[in-house]
Simulated assay, not measured.
Amino acid sequence: MYYVLGIDGGGTKTICLVMNEQRQILGRGEAGASNYQSIGANAALISIESAIKAAIEQTGKIQVQAICLGLAGAGRSKDIEVIQGIIRDLQQSPNLPIEWILPNNIIICHDALTALVGGIGNDVGVVVAAGTGTIVFGRNQQGQTKRVGGWGYILGDEGGAYNIAVAGMKAAMRAYDGRELSTCLVEDFKNQLGLESIEDLIEVVYRRGWGVREIASLAPVVDNAAVNGDEVAREIIDEGVRELVKATRVVVTELVGDDFEIVTVGSVWKAKSNIRKKFMESICAEFGNVRVILPRYEPAYGACLLALKQLHFS
């Protein structure tokens, strides 16, 4: 029996699945964040080890013939070197009852690839990830890939929750100043955060030590305002959709010819203001050969499939 590990690691949590060559899931483990760029390599190692340990508690001691790690920010050679060090430490860990048989069967990739493979069930198509940040990634039948976005909250991430939340707060402040149209976002942010005045938003944003994820958590304020008919909020949401369509258009135009699928993953697609419907209508009107789908499997499942493919189980 062949066993592989598929790991999906990000800035919030780490998931590990144990799969055999028949694509049966034999164990699942979850732990904390494993984006080493934000928490450090040692902390990332601890999270990955904990997720693996939890997954194999359901299997007992096993031989692992391949491992795939789909990790946030793992696209550069320097990142891969760090992650290779983490894998070496895992193989030497006394906490993992695993016999490692990994001559060349180690795959390190960015999490957009595992989201694509997990979401669609194979490695051909396009994934449009819109959570805290955004990235569009595609792969065609010839193995060519194209990535658009994923540049982080300062340089990109248009259409993501952080971008939507910041746009909403900026609109509220402009409306309060009288520089732009009035919007219910002024009162909505006050109510959400328990502020006496919208001016107190300064204390929240600058003095509480809020990071990207805390700010991104305010995106539903804008979403709800759009649902309730606020024109300013609607325009913010519509601009986010336009950016996601624009990024997807670049990937589709460059890569894909025949019929293919686009999988949407991430929290933004669950918005009440029909973001996903608007995106689908726009992209399908432009490209008649696409189908927009919800994820069939989770990214860690995609990591397992990539590991099996390395062992020639396709």
Rank of each mutant, 00 (worst) to 15 (best):
I56R: 04
F279D: 14
G27W: 01
G194Q: 13
V222W: 08
G40C: 02
L218I: 01
N105T: 14
G266Q: 03
V263T: 13
I52H: 09
Y176C: 08
R76L: 12
P295S: 15
E180D: 13
V265M: 04
P103I: 15
Q65A: 12
V292R: 09
G125K: 04
G178N: 11
S217C: 12
R88Q: 13
E199M: 11
Q84H: 11
E187F: 01
V148M: 07
T12I: 10
R28P: 00
I101C: 11
W151K: 00
R147Q: 10
S217W: 10
G11M: 08
F287N: 10
I86S: 02
V256H: 10
V268W: 04
V128L: 04
E30T: 09
G11F: 08
I164T: 07
I86K: 06
A171F: 00
C68Q: 10
A51C: 05
G229L: 05
G118M: 13
V205M: 15
A43R: 07
G131W: 04
E231S: 11
A225Q: 07
E199V: 12
A172W: 02
L294N: 13
K270G: 12
K246T: 09
G266M: 08
A175E: 11
R174E: 12
F279W: 11
K278P: 09
I154F: 09
D177A: 05
G11H: 02
K78T: 08
Q91E: 14
G131L: 14
K78S: 09
D188H: 08
G70W: 04
A247R: 02
V250E: 14
I135A: 08
I107W: 07
N228I: 02
D111N: 11
Q37K: 14
A161P: 03
F279Q: 09
K190I: 15
V292C: 14
V204A: 15
G138V: 12
A219R: 06
E243I: 01
I275C: 10
Y297A: 10
Y36A: 08
Y153M: 05
R291E: 15
Q142A: 03
K146T: 00
I107T: 07
V241W: 00
P295D: 15
G60W: 01
G70I: 05
S77A: 05
Y3E: 07
I48Q: 05
D230F: 00
W151E: 13
A271G: 04
I236P: 00
V166M: 13
L255A: 04
N42S: 01
F279K: 09
G178E: 06
E235H: 01
V251N: 00
V4G: 03
N20H: 01
G119D: 11
K246R: 04
R234W: 00
I46P: 00
L305S: 15
T253P: 00
T134Y: 03
A303G: 10
Q58N: 06
I202E: 15
K78V: 08
K13T: 13
D200W: 08
H312W: 14
Y3H: 04
G240R: 00
I56K: 07
E235V: 01
T145H: 00
I83Y: 04
I120L: 15
I164N: 00
I120D: 12
G133C: 09
E180W: 01
R213T: 15
G70N: 02
M1G: 13
